[in-house]
Amino acid sequence: MKKTKHLGKAFILAAFVGLLIAADHIDAPDVASSYSDITDYYAFQGEDTNNIVFVANVKGLMSPSETASASFDENVLIEFNIDTDGDYIEDLVIQATPRDGQMYFFGPYQPATTGLNSTINTGAPTATATITPYGKEPLITTSNGMMFFAGPRDDPFFMDFARYGEIISGKASGFNNPGSDTFAGTNVLSIVVEVPKNKIGSTGTINTWVESKTKS
Rank of each mutant, 00 (worst) to 15 (best):
Y35L: 15
A184V: 11
P125I: 04
T132K: 11
S63A: 08
G107A: 03
I168K: 11
D48G: 06
Y41N: 05
L77A: 03
F161P: 05
S36H: 13
A172P: 07
D40V: 10
I89Q: 13
F106W: 09
D91R: 04
P138V: 08
A129G: 04
N57Q: 13
I140W: 02
K5V: 12
K215Y: 14
D154H: 11
A23Y: 07
N144L: 04
Q110Y: 10
T182C: 09
D24V: 08
K2C: 07
I78R: 06
D155F: 05
P98R: 01
N177I: 13
Y35M: 15
G86H: 07
F16C: 03
A32E: 14
T203Y: 08
R163H: 05
S34R: 09
S169W: 05
T49N: 12
D37C: 15
I206P: 03
S33Q: 15
I26V: 12
A172S: 10
F72P: 05
V93N: 02
L13G: 08
V53P: 00
D87M: 03
Q110W: 09
T130H: 09
G165F: 12
K59C: 11
A32L: 13
G115Q: 04
A96F: 07
V210R: 02
Q102S: 13
L7I: 13
S63C: 04
T186F: 05
I206N: 02
G170Q: 00
V192A: 06
A70S: 06
T141V: 01
T132C: 10
G107V: 02
Y41L: 08
D155W: 04
F148P: 00
F16H: 08
A10G: 09
G115S: 04
I200F: 00
G151D: 03
I120D: 05
F148C: 00
G60W: 00
N176L: 13
Y88Q: 11
T186R: 07
D37H: 11
T114Y: 07
D73N: 06
K3Q: 10
F72H: 03
T128P: 01
G18L: 07
I52D: 04
T132W: 09
T84K: 14
V31R: 15
N187C: 09
I38C: 03
V53F: 03
P133G: 00
N198R: 12
K197R: 14
L116C: 10
Y88S: 13
K9F: 13
M1C: 09
G123W: 08
L20Q: 14
T4A: 14
A127C: 01
E66L: 15
V31L: 13
G201K: 07
N51S: 04
N75G: 09
N198F: 15
T203W: 09
E166I: 05
V192K: 07
V31H: 10
N57K: 08
P138Q: 08
F72K: 02
S71C: 10
H6D: 12
T205G: 08
P108W: 02
M103W: 01
A23F: 09
K213C: 01
I21D: 14
S65Y: 12
F80A: 06
K59I: 06
D30P: 07
V210Y: 04
K171V: 08
P196V: 00
T113P: 06
I89V: 15
T203M: 06
G170E: 00
Y35K: 15
I168M: 07
G151T: 02
S65W: 13
F54R: 03
P98W: 01
V188D: 03
